[in-house]
Design a protein around this nucleic acid. Structure first.
Lengths: 98, 98
DNA sequence: GTCACCCTTTCCGGCATGGAAAGTGACGGG
DNA sequence: CCCGTCACTTTCCATGCCGGAAAGGGTGAC
């Protein structure tokens, strides 16, 4: 089927995480600092939210050492994309009265 | 201008309140029991969320006695419609990567 | 006066959140 | 080798929101 089941997801709904998912949905990988700046939160706050997404199985981390520097990148898993798509579908359903 | 400024609104974002706004956006007035059932919460919980929307100036209550029964109806104010539209625009912006 | 109907408010325990600060692991330099 | 830095992680802490349960009005019917 091509349609996504609308499904409210509290893990995805929280503002910072909704933004994180939105950013990651548009790309394959995004680096930690880029996400942090785009979302506008501190390292610790981003780290904590990413951890929750990770524990939900929605995000994976890839840690690489590039040019002697740590570079942590984030990506949505298939489950993460599904959950995000479902949540967005639900948001659209809820807000369709607009 | 016809476009709405995307503007995240925490008061509107909370799940129960997003639903309430979504319902009210589609109509002029809706009765308390109908909203309560549609949102799927108890009287007290709905009352508390409506109060928050009211204090934000987004919702107004109209209390009428019809056929000897209290009938409280809810409606979005102009500010409420603006806030909801702005929030939905922001949600669309955030989720555009989908 | 008493009761029922409709919300409101209070009480309460629990979970989430963000800022600050301490902690960790991997290098590169001295 | 030890030290300092970088790039996150984790801990600590204080605050706030949330929902369920129960007690509270207010109004009209009996």
């Amino acid at each position: 089927m091509t349609t996504v089941q609308p499904r409210f997801d509290a893990v995805v709904h929280a503002p910072p995480r909704l933004q994180i998912c939105g950013l990651l949905a548009a790309v394959d990988w995004m680096e930690f600092p880029s996400v942090r700046d785009a979302v506008g939160v501190s390292d610790s706050v981003l780290s904590k939210h990413v951890k929750q997404l990770e524990e939900a199985g929605y995000v994976v981390l890839r840690k690489a050492t590039v040019a002697s520097r740590q570079r942590t990148s984030l990506a949505l898993t298939t489950a993460g994309r599904t959950a995000f798509a479902g949540h967005v579908a639900e948001l659209r359903r809820i807000t369709q009265g607009l």
